[in-house]
Every structure is written in C-alpha cells, then in structure tokens.
Design a protein around this nucleic acid. Structure first.
Length: 124
DNA sequence: CGCTTGACCGGAA
DNA sequence: ATTCCGGCCAAGC
C-alpha cells in the first residue's frame, strides 16, 4: 500500500525542493505543487489546492529550509507577518524587485530533469 | 467528530 | 488596480 503520502511525506518533498533552490532564485507554491513527484491529489483538476498544502508545509518548515525563497504566483511574497523581512532577504540575494514585485520567469528556478520552465509571459 | 482558518491559484466583477 | 468568489485539502480548535 502504499500510501500514504502523509503530511510528513509531502512536507519532506516540499522542503527538499525548496532546499534545492539556489540563492537569487525563487519558486512559487504552485510551481512546487506541480513539480512534486507524488502530489496528494490524483488530478481532479490542477495544482491549485496542492499549493495550499505547500503553504502549510512552509508554515512548518524547519530552519534548514529557505522559506523566504518561496513566493506566490503573483511574483510577490505571501501575506505573512514577515513579508517585509522576506523581501529584504530576497533583494539581499540579488533579486530585482520592482514595485514589490519581481520578474517571475526571470528568477524562477526549476529543478533539472523534472519539469520544463513555465515560460509564463507577463501581462501588465 | 465538525467548523474555521490558511505562507494558494485563477478567474470574474 | 482591487475585491469577491469558487475550489481543493489539511491542520488546528
């Protein structure tokens, strides 16, 4: 059986992914959710909900995980209490913030041999 | 065991 | 640009 994919399992995967994120790079919750090899949900729809699980995982992420490199699909930091702090950390890593926003595809990091770059074109 | 909240996403008003 | 709504799942109370 298998199973399981308990929260521990999923969280581990999320943390593992985030830990691989190099400096100056960022990943979105949805990106992680879609990249994970064994998502909790089969595929009823999209990774929309899975992204939320990623957020939960981040909430419990240990100090080994650069949670500050994880941002939302909007190219901005999440609505967390230390959002400003996260911004500092990110810009300190060489990220170019524009209006509190960054070029997602520009700094988006993707794991090699997993998925292809989203190549999402921004629409102002 | 049930309701509320959440570090989300995407689309529509 | 902002605000609201629906969706999906898990953790917390």
């Amino acid at each position: 059986m298998t199973i399981s994919w308990t929260k521990e399992s999923y969280f581990e995967q999320v943390w593992s992914f985030v830990r691989q994120v190099p400096e100056g790079k960022v990943v979105t919750y949805g990106q992680i959710a879609q990249t994970l090899p064994d998502p909790p949900v089969p595929d009823t729809g999209e990774m929309v909900s899975a992204a939320r699980l990623v957020g939960s995982a981040m909430a419990a992420s240990p100090a080994d995980v650069p949670w500050h490199r994880v941002i939302n699909a909007q190219g901005r930091v999440s609505n967390r209490a230390d959002a400003a702090k996260q911004l500092e950390l990110l810009e300190a890593e060489g990220l170019c913030f524009v209006h509190g926003r960054i070029d997602l595809p520009e700094h988006l990091w993707h794991d090699t041999n997993q998925i292809a770059p989203p190549k999402q074109h921004q629409l102002f």
